[in-house]
């Protein structure tokens, strides 16, 4: 049984002009079906306006489908009584950490979710501790969030979600505003939580490098799923990705350019190690 079932979801909204007259209907998500298994690491790519964030907001019932249904851990998102439970099951992390942190100090922020859920005080503290440890921020527990770097703040945002013991976390461009170190910290935390705690991860990003560790990748275009497969399968299709305004990791691009120059490299090289190995072999053949 999958943890998330997106069944033929269409999401439309009505555009209105200043006098509130209907100007037209925009279909942001168009008949998307998608199932996610527990413990999977899913990445969603797509250009600006492709519908990926709109789709993601359906998973924790921020938006409801115009047609079709979304079922999270057996609960239909249209079932109002299940709303709180759905949001605890599928937590969301957004782009800008400054819009998500509300506590005066780090541990207060992380404790906010479980406190709201009515978790007993003693257990709140246990959850705060384990969540901060899971993202490597425990030593900053008594800091004011405004003393933290972007990557650290974003890890606190993730800890605040984990403290509610979700089965799934949706991350909507969590690294867009971060420096290289911050990006690495956040992606490392996401991968560790997926590996160790088996939390299902759905990562939306514009950074192709962050996708290579995912189990499956979905590429959205015009509200539909345009491509899906493993990172290796997806990044083997360089020209198709470029037509969809996307790109490939720089390692993959370099391998692609070398291949175009005649070097017999395999498609879909994703890591430095793979490229080094492949080139070593080619050099040995040449000698």
């Amino acid at each position: 049984m999958g943890i998330i079932h997106i069944n033929k979801v269409t999401y439309e909204y009505i555009r209105r002009d200043e006098e509130n007259n209907v100007e037209g209907i925009t279909t942001a998500v168009d008949g998307v079906s998608l199932a996610v298994e527990p413990g999977e690491f899913i990445a969603i790519l797509g250009h600006n306006g492709s519908g990926k964030s709109t789709l993601a907001k359906h998973i924790n019932a921020i938006l409801y489908p115009s047609e079709g249904s979304v079922v999270v851990d057996g609960m239909d998102t249209k079932d109002e009584d299940a709303l709180l439970k759905i949001r605890q099951t599928a937590g969301m992390v957004f782009q800008n950490p400054d819009n998500q942190i509300i506590g005066q100090i780090v541990e207060e922020d992380v404790g906010f979710g479980p406190e709201n859920m009515g978790v007993p005080t003693k257990e709140i503290w246990e959850r705060v501790e384990e969540s901060l440890k899971a993202v490597g921020m425990y030593e900053y527990r008594s800091y004011s969030p405004n003393k933290l770097s972007g990557g650290q703040k974003q890890r606190v945002s993730i800890a605040s979600v984990i403290a509610m013991h979700p089965k799934c976390i949706i991350l909507d461009e969590p690294t867009a505003m971060l420096d290289p170190m911050g990006r690495r910290e956040v992606i490392r935390a996401v991968r560790a939580l997926n590996d160790v705690e088996k939390i299902t991860m759905i990562l939306i990003t514009h950074y192709m490098e962050e996708v290579i560790y995912a189990d499956r990748v979905f590429v959205m275009d015009k509200g539909k799923v345009a491509m899906s497969g493993t990172p290796k399968e997806i990044f083997s299709r360089v020209s198709e990705l470029r037509e969809l305004r996307l790109d490939v990791p720089q390692v993959t691009e370099l391998a692609y350019e070398l291949k175009r120059a005649g070097v017999p490299l395999p498609d879909g090289i994703l890591t430095r190690e793979e490229l080094t190995e492949a080139l070593k072999k080619i050099r040995m053949m040449g000698q």
Partner: peptide, 28 residues
Amino acid sequence: GLSAPQVTYILQDLKSAGLDVDTTGITL
């Protein structure tokens, strides 16, 4: 908290693997 471009690291890897590349490259 910064880094070199990815291709620079690739060139360093290749150099360590015995390929005679120029590791000062920073663009694709």
